[in-house]
């Protein structure tokens, strides 16, 4: 075998099994989303393909008989606002901890990260009282208020590590050239930090899309729900799971997210590993 062929096949042979394992859930979602319900329960048919033909009924039911579009809109709205809040708070916080707080910065950074580790299953009870007192029950405002409590700590810690990889000499030069600290941040530091910022955006948005406990306990009406609460509530009817609908409902938002990850994959990796060697 020529060395060219080896170089071509070698990496692919290593990657292929992982790719199959990771892509399989998506494949399964696609197959199930377009499969007839009766075929889903037919154990005699091979489950990896369509035998009775494809159907759009699961998709149609989703859009016609559930407030799925509203869930998508709610999720997008909450996601965008939470990401914006997270950036506004975490960017200066991460920078300050990396540059301005000396030896305390690292300790505080770890301390802030630890707050991220407190599970929502413990926090939702006291937070329920807060939400009620603020008259935010059953409104998207409750989620917009609460979600930054876990996106900001993680993002601050992540950005802190990333800012440390940027040579301070760049800012010093900007300051000498007459920039203020804020100007140096906006003109020099943030553009260089784009991979880190993108990581925060994608990661925070993913956290918001996946969050379940707060979404199910703070929101009670179907039309105010986000995807993570709406799908299991309206499509899992106690002991009857509408598999086709569930798969269609999870497949649809996963496509743009997958494309987003793919488009910014290199920057995403750079963002996560940026502070790893400091």
């Amino acid at each position: 075998m020529s060395s060219v062929l080896r170089r071509f096949l070698g990496p692919r042979a290593v990657v292929l099994p992982f790719a199959i394992v990771l892509a399989f859930p998506f494949y399964w979602m696609v197959v199930t989303a377009f499969k007839k319900t009766t075929e889903l329960y037919d154990l005699s048919s091979v489950p990896f393909w369509w035998h009775d033909g494809v159907t759009l009924s699961n998709i149609r039911d989703l859009f016609e008989h559930t407030p799925y579009v509203t869930w998508l809109e709610n999720t997008a709205l909450v996601g965008v606002i939470v990401v914006a809040i997270t950036l506004v708070v975490a960017l200066p916080a991460g920078y300050a901890l990396a540059r301005l707080s000396g030896g305390w910065g690292q300790t505080m950074g770890v301390g802030i990260f630890l707050t991220y580790l407190v599970p929502p299953t413990l926090l939702f009870l006291p937070l329920s009282r807060v939400i009620s007192d603020l008259h935010l029950s059953n409104s998207l405002g409750s989620l917009i208020l609460v979600y930054p409590s876990f996106t900001i700590p993680f993002s601050t810690w992540l950005l802190m590590g990333f800012f440390k990889t940027i040579p301070p000499e760049l800012e010093d030069a900007a300051l000498i050239d007459g920039c203020s600290r804020i100007q140096a941040l906006i003109r020099i530091v943030f553009p260089i930090s784009l991979p880190g910022i993108l990581t925060v955006v994608i990661f925070s948005f993913s956290l918001v899309v996946n969050e379940f406990i707060y979404a199910i306990t703070f929101i009670s009406s179907s039309h105010n729900r986000t995807l993570s609460a709406g799908v299991p509530t309206d499509l899992i009817r106690g002991d009857l799971v509408l598999w086709g609908g569930v798969m269609a409902a999870t497949l649809i938002p996963s496509i743009p997210l997958a494309l987003l990850y793919n488009a910014f994959l290199n920057r995403f990796i750079a963002g996560f590993t940026g502070g790893a060697f400091r």
């Binding site: 009282r129 009620s132 406990i213 306990t217």
Partner: peptide, 14 residues
């Protein structure tokens, strides 16, 4: 159960 616990904690709900 979780929802009930939240309503009791908040002393507000349905």
């Amino acid at each position: 159960a979780a929802r009930a616990a939240a309503e009791v904690a908040a002393q507000s709900g349905h």
